[in-house]
């Protein structure tokens, strides 16, 4: 059996490619047994979206102070998928009294549902607002019961949940690929075995790129130092493992150079 590799899972989100189609949101909902977000749950502000697409309207700089006057053809819709940033220095982790959330040795911020007692301290302490609490017992319509993913726990009420980087798929990759003689997890083997997280697999424009930051050949390792890279709320010092690549604006000179 091959020497088990050390992994550090990470994701690159190329904002330039995102069209805001929400395929990642739907894929995530169905892969991870997330309860249906009804109109009611949005009104209660208790909707669960492990990955969400934030939408912004951008106006030219000269209209910054009076956006409503900008000519419509210059107003751009901007999209930013936001998911758990799997921070290396996560504010949510030290505050959990029962280790329901902790950092595993593969760089993931994991959530152990059956340990969670529901203090909700982690959600208070998450600057990205990507933690979701089950205020109600989740229910699915009868005809959707059979679509529940058997690899993912169905959470009960009173439990905190969030993006896991589809840890069930990553674990399957580790057993299936690394279980073989000389098996090595690469971008290619992850993609071929359908081991990528559901959002990554569903993304039609390859906005979301998942991989091993420890593997120098992986796409994420190459992109993480791209001149366009930034991290969300970098100033807080959470050191996320999700790296964003900024939008290329053809109207700006410096962006063209990075191309």
């Amino acid at each position: 059996m091959a020497q088990r590799m050390k992994h550090k899972w990470g994701m690159v989100v190329d904002i330039d490619k995102c069209t805001g189609c929400q395929a990642c949101v739907v894929a995530c909902q169905s892969e991870n047994n997330i309860p249906l977000n009804t109109e009611d749950s949005f009104h209660q502000r208790r909707a669960m979206e492990w990955i969400r697409v934030e939408r912004y309207w951008e106006v030219p700089d000269e209209y910054r102070d009076r956006p409503e006057e900008a000519p419509f053809q210059d107003v751009k819709a901007r999209f930013m998928p936001v998911l758990c940033q799997h921070c290396e220095n996560a504010p949510c982790e030290p505050v959990c009294p029962v280790f329901a959330t902790y950092h595993n040795d593969e760089g993931m911020n994991v959530q152990v549902y059956n340990r969670c007692v529901g203090t909700r301290y982690c959600a208070n302490n998450c600057p990205y607002q990507v933690r979701f609490f089950n205020f109600w017992e989740p229910v699915w319509p009868e005809r959707l019961r059979n679509q529940l993913n058997p690899d993912v726990t169905v959470r009960s009420r009173g439990v905190m949940e969030k993006c896991t980087f589809c840890v069930q798929r990553v674990r399957r990759a580790e057993t299936k690929i690394e279980g073989q003689e000389d098996g090595q997890i690469t971008d290619k083997s992850l993609a071929e075995g359908n081991f990528m997280p559901a959002c990554v697999q569903a993304c039609p424009t390859n906005t979301l790129i998942f991989g091993d930051l420890e593997d120098p050949d992986s796409q994420v390792s190459r992109l993480k130092d791209d001149p366009r890279h930034y991290k969300l709320l970098e100033n807080i010092g959470t050191e996320p493992n999700v790296i964003y690549l900024k939008k290329i604006d053809p109207r700006r000179k410096e962006d063209e150079a990075h191309g």
Binding site: R45, R120, N124, F133, N134, W136, E137, R157, G158
Partner: peptide
């Protein structure tokens, strides 16, 4: 019995 949904708590205001 019903879950914390019966309170006024919501996503940003967890306490």
């Amino acid at each position: 019995n019903q879950g914390l949904g019966v309170t006024g708590l919501n996503r940003p205001v967890m306490w």
